[in-house]
Write a protein that binds this DNA or RNA. Structure first.
Lengths: 238, 238
DNA sequence: CGCCGAATTGACACGGTTCAATTGAGGTGG
DNA sequence: CCACCTCAATTGAACCGTGTCAATTCGGCG
């Protein structure tokens, strides 16, 4: 169930989109992005983010909260393809690439806006260069991440997988202007991380403990701190 | 090192492409495909298939032999993203999706042809409907396969992974007109399968033995036979 | 205070890896 | 035609990374 929310809250949040657009954002683009908040909607955890209108879901941008693309197996097992953080676009290019159309579920309370205006604007690159760049690059970025995920799952140990994912999330959140210097929000349960990394919850927990014991990371109240980025990058190349 | 090869051999081989185009192939399309053999080249096992011209590799179609998209880790581990069989297109949409640009290496002696004429023809869907359909669908099919691979690696047991991959390969080869009724060529070593499925060679070997012991498959001289497709599909959903 | 989901812990079983050696099959040269 | 070579397939045994099961503790919230 989507509910409209206050303009004020969202206005503060669209800056993750501006951040993702990079340094050079024209005035037109800034106005375009700020206009997005009109379509803001919130969804509770567990909500499918790409349902309406059925059959032709509209693309959206996540302003706040986390989500994931996932597949559920008949026997209840779950594989998460990708974690989605504020600033990420979903449902791009309807009917095109399957990853963009995968079941997308919110993991926390999530605020999203309609991304259609961005798609439209992207068709005039001269007027909206940064938007066009982002829209064009998104499917490739997503696919690249999926490839990294395959390597993680296929050839990394549990320990390496966790480190590699944390480094990736750190980079992505920094690019969205969230978190800084190796400290960033991680508002998901260990079960979610386990389902992304193909591990059991118990083992996920033990790996995190090990990393804390080794003083490589620090966790608390929905945030992680990477204490020794160099050491971590040695474990799982950048 | 690519070498031109006899026209006659290739003429017999382009039918995998026609097969992939489906039932309705116009005369123009048939002529187009048959003209591809002019650019035929062979490569030995281990050859990189997307090298020339450097920086802007031309898209190609595999006429015979198998290849794979892979990534090598600094410590020698290898993860195979996808096995490529005759009729598959590689290097599509240069500069676009990263999967299409991944390192593509032949696993057997391989014959390929330049796929550029197909890309060009695909821009006139009315004249080349089947070609346009195939070219447009290929990136999505590849990505879909990559997603299935993530699920295999993340949430399937070794046994399930092997079965799932064999079923996939059976379907794909049937679509290319190779193999029939659950019997198809599998001209790769167990090490290749292991590197695709994230297993050790030894374990790969043991799983295959188990499947033979259970009379679910049969192997020999580079071919597999799926003896009980139903049972196999029960193990790893279609 | 009591509740509930999440995090944590311990014991144990098992899947999968590693190492090391052997067998088998195809190819080559003598 | 056979000896030999090489790479792939196979085997055995030991090891250990991960999963499973079942409690228990923790932390936020009504």
């Amino acid at each position: 169930m989507n509910l409209s929310i206050g303009r004020k809250v969202c206005a503060a949040r669209v800056d993750v989109v501006l951040k993702r657009l990079g340094g050079r954002v024209s005035g037109d683009e800034r106005a375009l992005v700020q206009g997005l908040v009109a379509s803001a909607a919130e969804a509770g955890p567990g909500a499918e983010l790409l349902t309406e209108p059925a059959g032709a879901p509209s693309p959206r941008v996540i302003l706040s909260g986390w989500a994931c693309r996932q597949r559920l197996l008949p026997d209840g097992r779950r594989q998460i393809f990708d974690l989605l953080v504020p600033g990420d676009m979903i449902g791009l290019a309807p009917g095109s690439l399957p990853l963009g159309q995968a079941s997308t579920v919110s993991l926390t309370r999530t605020a999203t806006v309609d991304a259609s205006p961005l798609i439209v604007a992207a068709q005039r690159p001269s007027a909206f260069p940064a938007v066009a760049r982002l829209v064009a690059a998104t499917p490739a970025i997503d696919e690249e991440r999926l490839m990294n995920h395959v390597v993680r799952l296929g050839r990394f140990t549990a320990y390496e997988r966790v480190v590699h994912l944390l480094l990736e999330l750190g980079d992505r959140l920094a690019a969205a202007g969230l978190g800084d210097k190796g400290r960033f929000p991680l508002p998901v349960t260990q079960e979610v991380l386990a389902d992304a990394l193909g591990l059991s919850v118990v083992h996920m927990n033990r790996i995190l403990q090990q990393l804390r014991r080794e003083s490589l990371i620090q966790m608390g109240s929905g945030h992680v701190t990477l204490l020794a980025r160099e050491a971590l990058e040695t474990v799982a190349g950048p």
